Structure formats: structure tokens, C-alpha cells
Amino acid sequence: MKSSTGRYRILAVAILTLGVGVAAPANASPATKFVPAAITDPAGDVYDDDDEPTDAPYADIVSANGRSGAGNLVLTYKTAKALSPLDDPNWESDNTFTDFLLDTNADGDADFTVEYAVLDGEQYVDVYQVDDQDDPPALCSGVAAFTSGTHSATVPLSCLGNPSSLGYRVETVYDQDVDDDSSLAAYDVAPETGFAKVN
């Protein structure tokens, strides 16, 4: 598992779902309906730490998808501009990562988060249970990839308890200038409310 102390992002998840330019999902009943799996997101809807619009195309989600099969969950997304995290120095920042939030019981709340990031020059994927622990251990690791402009995270379904239904939401956090201590992070989320269905 590649993550290190402090890289678990539940606090950033809370920031994203409570503000930062996006609407928080409404409380949902167990009968929550997921939106279709393959989703599109408008370009140019990225906000910074001051909750102001910002031009950050490498954080700007334009499409995402979630698929399951052969014992694995594959989560993907594309941004307005494509660049491998290994070629972008801003991904070396602790303030650059992507979380895939997973709803495994259709209650409208995240049960797991899949962290996709870079550490020590390598991409990694780790899975965490969403709970009230300050520094919870990673439950398992997955496979991170960037191919043909698409970011992907693959994790074993067994790590999630082999749920019968799955919803996902993608949240990007992007340090716009790793060399500037005053740089503001950029944020985007898709879908903007609720979860998309994993096929």
C-alpha cells in the first residue's frame, strides 16, 4: 500500500461535499436511485480554496464511468486537459489527488473512498472505509493507470464486501503550483449531487 500518514483525504472529502462551489447531496432514503454509470460533467466548473471559479483544466472532470466485472471495480475519469500524473509535477503535492467515493448500500452516503494519487514518483490506489477514525488504515490497494488521456483506478470488489449495488462519485483536488506555498488547490466533483451507478 502506497499511502503514507496524512494522505487519507476524508477531511478534503468533507470540504468538497459541504461547499467549495458544489451542492451537497440531499439526505437520501434507502431507495436512492443512482444516475446512469457513464456521466458527463460541464467543463469550466472548477473552484479553488476561496470558493472562487478557477481555470484548472487538469482538475476539470468532463466524464467518468464505473464498471464491475471479473471480481474488480474499475473507476475512470477524464479531465478537460490530459496529462499523466507522472509527467505533472503538481501531482507530487500532498494537495493533489482524486477520491472516488463509493455508496455500497444506496443510502446516499459514502461508505468507502478510493484514493488515486502519486507518492515517491509512483501512482497508487488505496481503499479506505469512511468512518470517524483520524488516520484509518488502508483496507487494500488497487491499480492506478493513466492511458489515452483516461485516469483509472481498479480495486478488488472483495475489499468492498462484494456489494450487490454500487454508486460512485469522483472528486478531484489539484495543487495548481507545487512550487508556490500560497498556491490554492482547485476542486471539481462529478456527479455534482448523489452518486452514479456502477454497471
Rank of each mutant, 00 (worst) to 15 (best):
P156A: 12
S93G: 12
V13C: 01
Y58R: 11
E192C: 01
I10F: 09
A185W: 00
E122Y: 04
D177C: 02
A26T: 14
P36E: 06
L157Y: 15
P89K: 04
D107Y: 07
G167H: 14
G167D: 11
C159L: 05
P25Q: 07
D179R: 04
A38M: 08
P137H: 02
Q129W: 00
A64M: 08
D49L: 12
C159N: 04
D126Q: 03
L75D: 10
A70T: 12
A31C: 05
D88R: 15
K33N: 05
E52G: 01
N95K: 11
Y124S: 01
F97A: 11
C159F: 01
A23W: 00
L139Q: 08
S3E: 02
N90M: 09
V198E: 05
V46H: 01
V118Y: 01
I39V: 15
A14V: 13
P57F: 09
E171Q: 07
T17Q: 09
L73T: 01
T147C: 00
D94H: 11
N105Y: 09
L16H: 11
R67I: 02
F100R: 03
L166W: 03
D48C: 04
V46I: 13
L18S: 13
L157M: 15
S3F: 11
A43K: 08
T147M: 02
T104R: 11
G6D: 08
D180C: 00
S148C: 04
T147D: 15
V178H: 03
R9G: 14
I39Y: 02
T5I: 11
D45N: 15
G69R: 06
V62D: 06
D126C: 02
D120M: 10
Y8M: 09
R7M: 14
L184H: 12
V13L: 09
Q176G: 01
T96L: 00
P191F: 12
Y116A: 09
A153M: 07
S165D: 13
K81Y: 15
T32C: 09
P137R: 03
V155W: 01
T76R: 15
L160S: 14
Y128I: 00
V13W: 07
R67L: 06
K197L: 14
V173F: 08
V130I: 13
Y174D: 04
D131Y: 02
V127W: 00
V198Y: 03
T54D: 00
Q133V: 02
L157W: 15
L139K: 14
S158E: 12
T32I: 07
T193I: 10
